[in-house]
Simulated assay, not measured.
Amino acid sequence: MSEIKSASAAKRPPRQPRTGLTSTGARKAGSKSDRSRAREFALQGLYQSLVGRNAVDDIDTFTRDLAGFNKADSVHFDALLQGCVAEGAQLDALIVPLLDRPLSEISPIEHAIMWIGAYELQHCMDVPWRVVLNECIELAKEFGGTDGHKYVNAVLNGLAPSLRATEIAADRSPTKKPRA
């Protein structure tokens, strides 16, 4: 009996770690924070809103029943989903001047990710601006098109100075003290 187990174990590939990066460069599920998971679920909900024109209450109910939602920050999810849908026109007004093509030509995934980034830059002051950009880039790597993360990065990097000017100025100013 032990020979059978040994033979079948030898044929299996080695177990892959649950943390780290996938082959596309995105973080694996075991490496994600509660807020990162909330952003993923919000992205799925915003996609349903943008593409399917589903009601936000229906999206909310559906999303909360998905596997893994219990590991997400539900308060942050609520803020992102409800806030982005409610302020979609204002978020688009912030994003459109930074686009090199009409908004209708932007993938709904990248559109939703840019909504999340713009919303967080505007309303979630507890999240540093660099974290907002990084999280949105990670979402675009995992769910967007091949180079969608580069486009999302460019747009949100262009938007951040107008929404977080003080934070960015403080972040970019030289803070090193000369040694005596």
Rank of each mutant, 00 (worst) to 15 (best):
S6V: 10
S8W: 11
A9M: 05
A9H: 04
K11C: 09
R12T: 03
R12E: 11
R15M: 13
P17W: 05
T19S: 09
L21T: 10
S23N: 12
S23Y: 09
G25D: 09
K28S: 04
A29K: 07
K32A: 00
D34Y: 02
D34H: 06
D34K: 15
S36G: 10
R37E: 05
A38H: 05
A42M: 10
A42V: 11
G45K: 08
G45V: 09
Y47W: 09
L50A: 11
L50C: 00
V51T: 07
A55G: 10
D57S: 14
T61S: 13
F62Q: 13
T63G: 01
D65I: 01
D65F: 05
A67T: 15
N70R: 13
D73L: 05
D73P: 02
H76L: 11
D78S: 14
A79T: 15
A79E: 14
V85A: 12
A86F: 08
G88C: 06
G88Q: 13
D92F: 02
L94S: 07
L94I: 04
I95S: 06
I95Q: 07
L98D: 01
L98K: 05
L98T: 01
L99T: 06
L99Q: 09
D100W: 06
S104W: 00
E105W: 01
E105T: 07
S107D: 08
P108L: 01
I109Y: 06
A112G: 10
W115F: 12
I116A: 02
I116Y: 00
Q122P: 05
C124R: 12
D126L: 09
W129R: 02
V132K: 03
L133W: 00
N134E: 13
E135K: 03
E135T: 06
I137G: 00
E142F: 02
G144A: 04
G145V: 10
G145E: 14
K150C: 11
N153A: 15
A154R: 15
L156K: 01
L156W: 01
N157E: 12
N157K: 15
T166G: 11
T166Y: 06
I168P: 02
I168C: 02
A170C: 07
A170E: 13
D171E: 14
S173R: 15
K176G: 11
K177N: 14
P178V: 13
R179D: 08
